[in-house]
Design a protein around this nucleic acid. Structure first.
Lengths: 124, 124
DNA sequence: TTGGACCTTCACATCAGTGTGAAGGCAAGG
DNA sequence: CCTTGCCTTCACACTGATGTGAAGGTCCAA
């Protein structure tokens, strides 16, 4: 159980932002007797997850909605009953949007690499 | 040569944003005798390119810098002399950042698809 | 000739994500 | 005990991308 400053150090994300993510419902935190937030080990990877998605252009709103289905290594959170048609639609829609981003990024990465290769024929 | 409203209609991007992209140096426009902006055919795909990159979390600043190396189907803009070491570093750095985004998005897409598959074993 | 649809620039507003600082509580160490 | 460092909440400010509206010019069609 580590406090916010330590989590900030381990993730490189400012404390201010960790509080913000909590406020947005992305990051839970226990409180110790004094009101200090304290985080378990899972918090580090969760914060990195959040950062990655944020950097990739998703909003905290979207992240909040898909995050529950992103955790746990393998099928820990599989509750078929919880998957309403609306939710399934939301998830599939989000998958499509993510795929579109991937396609666009991959296209442009290849264009950049193509340019670099064309201009410097003899380098990786 | 089409005016801004038509380009807006064809791309789904508000005129306001097309002017903004021009101001940011992303989108060139000729002017007809009255001061109207007019765009060639290439503008449509360029706007879509810009939108895709923006949606994928790149800033107009970054887009402006890499855009010159993204156009032309095949090696039209290959000027080895123009590739200073700084520029090459910038481009390779940007490729790396793009790749990181792709990896993050792909990971999360797979997690989402994995969840959907786990909860509905018999559907695409 | 007037109306409407389009264009121009300018400017102010909003939203999300982030930076930063004030004012104060808690805890360990000299 | 007092300093130092970490924590708390609150609040205001900034930035980039975007919405929106005002005030006015251009052009075509009734």
């Amino acid at each position: 159980m580590v406090r916010i400053g330590e989590l900030s150090r381990r993730t490189g994300v400012p404390s201010r932002m960790l509080r913000y993510y909590e406020e947005q419902g992305l990051l839970g935190a226990l409180r110790s007797d004094n009101g200090y937030r304290c985080y378990g080990e899972a918090a580090v990877s969760r914060v990195q997850q959040i950062r990655g998605l944020l950097d990739a252009g998703l909003t905290t709103e979207i992240i909040r909605r898909i995050l529950p289905f992103l955790e746990g290594p393998e099928g820990i959170h599989v509750h078929p009953a919880c998957l309403t048609p609306e939710l399934e639609g939301l998830l599939r829609g989000e998958v499509a949007r993510i795929q579109a981003r991937i396609d666009c990024l991959a296209r442009n990465r290849d264009a950049l690499l193509g340019y670099l290769a064309a201009v410097r024929p003899g380098s990786p």
